[in-house]
Design a protein around this nucleic acid. Structure first.
Length: 465
RNA sequence: GUCCCCAUCGUCUAGCCUGGUCCAGGACGGCGGCCUUUCACGCCGUUAACAGGGGUUCAAAUCCCCUUGGGGACGCCA
C-alpha cells in the first residue's frame, strides 16, 4: 500500500475554529496512524478576505494543539501559474472551453431552471462554440453518474446531469477553488482528503477534474459539522469558537484534542485518549456520520481529568504564563513558578481549568494582611466560642518544634482530646481563619503549603475579626 | 425548488456493514448514597434512547421502502 498523505487546507479568513480544528485533527490522525504524511496548505486565493493575521492564528493554533505538519506550508496564492498551466492543458485536450456568457445570463438561466423545478445550472451555451477567450469552463460529462466511496459516509453518487460546467478560470484570469484544490492536492501527493461535510457536493466536481486530467482520484472523507447546544450550526453567539480562546480560558491542549476526537470518533467505550493513543487507535472506520453537539460540560470534565493527571511543575509553568498573560501587572510578579508548583498538587483534584486553579490559589498567594474573608463564613464559623480555640491552637502551633504535617495532626488530635470536642467543631473555623472561606484542600496540607508564618498571621487576624 | 447527507438516553457515543448474545452498553449531566475536617476527587446505585409507518425474516436498533424531522449544497467564495 502506498503511503498515506493527507492534508488540512484552511482558508485564512479568520481564526481556526473548533470545527476546523477537529477536521485538522482527524486528518492529522489519519496520516499519523498510518505512518504517513500530513501536509498543510493555506488557501489564500481570496485576496479580499485572506489575512496574514489569520494565517498566523491558524498556524499558532495547530502548534498549540500539537498538530505538526510535514514539509513546507503551501500557499495556494503562489501557485497561480501552475493552475493556469493545467487549465490551458484542459482546454488543449478538449476537456474545457471558453465561455462568454455574462453573469447576468447565467443568473437568468439558474432562475429559470429553479422555477421549472430543475437544478439551477449553467446550460452549456458556449460548450461547442470554440471561443478563444472568456472564462474557462470544464466540459463535464452530461450523462452517467459520478460516485465515490466516502471514508465516513459510504458510497455517494450524483448524476452528472446534476452538475454544470463549472468555471475553472475567472474573467480576471484567476483559477477557481475547485480547480486549484485538485491541482494542489495532486501536486502535493495528497491521496486522502478528509474535510468538512459542506464539501460533499464539491467532491464529484473535483473528481471530474481529476478524471479529465487523467490523475489518480484520492480517497475522500467528509466529517459532519459541530453544532451548538441549540443544535444549530456553531457560530459566534455560541461563545468560544476559536481554538485559541480555549487557551485563554485556561484549558489544556490535550483536553481539547481529546474532546474533539470523541466528538465524532470513538473507540469502544474509551473516553480518555492521549495523542499517542489516538495515533495508535485511530481509524476512519469509526468516524461518526451524524453531526454532534459541542457539550461544554463534558469538555470541562475531560479538561478536569487532564488537570488531575498533569505534572504539577508543568501546571505551575502554565499558571505563570496564564497569570502574566491574562492578569499581568504586580500580581503576576508576586508569584513564582515554585509557589505554584507547591500548591498545584493540592488544587489539581479541584480545578477544571487553569483559570479555576488560579482562582483557587489566591488564598495561598496573597499575604495574610490582604486575605479576603468571606463574610458569611466568618459570621458562621468565627464565633465567640471558636475564636478562643483558634487562639489556643495558634499558640501551640507557634510552639511546635517541628512544623510538619504529622506534627500538626498530632497537635490537633491532642487538642480535641483535651477539650473533649470533635474535630468537626474546630475544622471549619480553622479553615475560614486561614483561607478566608469554607472550601479548601485538606486542612493540614493547606497549613503546610501556607507555611507556619502565614498560618499564624492569619489565625491572629481571624481572631480579631 | 432540485440534489446530497443525516436520524440510538438531555448531550457524546457503542452496537448497525457480517440480523438472534440488546426488554440496547459506556461516558458527561441529573438524582440518591458512601467516603469525609469543608469543597472537590473517588466509589456505588439510579434516571433516560433504537423518530414514525410499512415490509423482508422463525427473529430487526441492525436489511429494504415510504413518511416526518434536521442539515448541507446549488457562486466568476473557499
Amino acid at each position: 500500500m502506498t503511503k498515506i498523505v493527507s492534508r488540512f487546507a484552511p482558508s485564512p479568513t479568520g481564526y481556526l475554529h473548533i470545527g476546523g480544528a477537529r477536521t485538522a485533527l482527524f486528518s492529522w490522525l489519519l496520516a499519523r496512524a498510518a505512518g504517513g504524511e500530513f501536509r498543510l496548505r493555506i488557501e489564500d486565493t481570496d485576496r479580499e478576505r485572506s489575512t496574514k493575521e489569520a494565517t498566523d492564528a491558524i498556524i499558532d493554533s495547530m502548534k498549540w494543539l500539537g498538530l505538526d505538519h510535514d514539509g513546507e506550508i503551501v500557499f495556494q496564492s503562489a501557485r497561480a501559474d501552475r493552475h493556469n498551466e493545467i487549465i490551458d492543458r484542459l482546454i488543449e485536450t478538449g476537456h474545457a472551453y471558453y465561455c462568454r456568457c455574462s453573469k447576468e445570463d447565467v443568473d437568468a438561466m439558474r432562475e429559470k431552471a429553479m422555477k421549472e423545478g430543475r437544478k439551477p445550472k449553467y446550460d452549456g451555451t458556449c460548450r461547442d462554440k470554440r471561443l478563444t477567450s472568456g472564462v474557462v469552463r470544464l466540459k463535464a460529462p452530461q450523462e452517467g453518474a459520478t460516485g465515490f466511496d466516502d471514508m465516513v459516509k459510504g458510497f455517494i453518487s450524483i448524476e452528472n446531469s446534476e452538475m454544470d460546467d463549472m468555471i475553472l478560470r475567472r474573467t480576471d484570469g484567476t483559477p477557481t477553488y475547485n480547480l486549484a484544490v485538485v491541482v494542489d492536492d495532486h501536486d502535493m501527493g495528497v491521496n486522502h482528503v478528509l474535510r468538512g461535510d459542506d464539501h460533499v457536493n464539491n467532491t464529484p466536481r473535483q473528481i471530474l477534474i481529476y478524471k479529465a486530467l487523467g490523475w489518480d482520484v484520492p480517497k475522500f472523507g467528509h466529517v459532519p459539522m459541530i453544532l451548538g447546544p441549540d443544535k444549530k450550526k456553531l457560530s459566534k453567539r455560541h461563545g468560544a469558537l476559536s481554538v485559541m480562546e480555549y487557551e485563554k480560558m485556561g484549558y489544556l491542549p490535550e483536553a481539547v484534542t481529546n474532546y474533539l476526537a470523541r466528538l465524532g470518533w470513538s473507540h469502544g467505550d474509551q473516553e480518555l485518549f492521549t495523542m499517542d493513543e489516538m495515533v495508535r487507535l485511530f481509524s476512519p472506520d469509526h468516524l461518526g456520520n451524524s453531526p454532534s453537539v459541542f457539550d461544554l460540560t463534558k469538555f470541562e470534565w475531560v479538561n478536569g481529568q487532564y488537570m488531575q493527571q498533569a505534572d504539577p511543575d508543568r501546571l505551575a509553568g502554565l499558571l505563570c504564563d496564564f497569570l502574566a498573560r491574562e492578569v499581568g501587572g504586580e500580581e503576576a510578579k508576586a508569584v513564582s513558578r515554585a509557589d505554584f508548583a507547591r500548591i498545584a498538587p493540592l488544587l489539581q483534584p479541584r480545578a477544571k481549568s487553569l483559570l479555576d486553579m488560579l482562582e483557587q490559589s489566591r488564598p495561598f498567594i496573597v499575604d495574610a494582611a490582604y486575605l479576603p474573608y468571606d463574610e458569611k463564613a466568618v459570621k458562621k464559623f468565627l464565633t465567640d466560642e471558636t475564636k478562643p480555640l483558634i487562639g489556643e491552637i495558634a499558640a501551640r502551633i507557634e510552639a511546635l518544634p517541628e512544623y510538619d504535617e504529622p506534627s500538626l495532626e498530632d497537635l490537633h488530635r491532642e487538642f480535641i482530646e483535651e477539650k473533649g470536642i470533635k474535630f468537626k467543631v474546630i475544622a471549619q473555623p480553622i479553615r475560614v481563619a486561614i483561607v478566608g472561606k469554607t472550601q479548601s484542600p485538606g486542612l493540614f496540607e493547606t497549613m503546610m503549603a501556607l507555611g507556619r508564618e502565614q498560618v499564624l498571621k492569619r489565625m491572629k487576624r481571624a481572631v480579631e475579626l
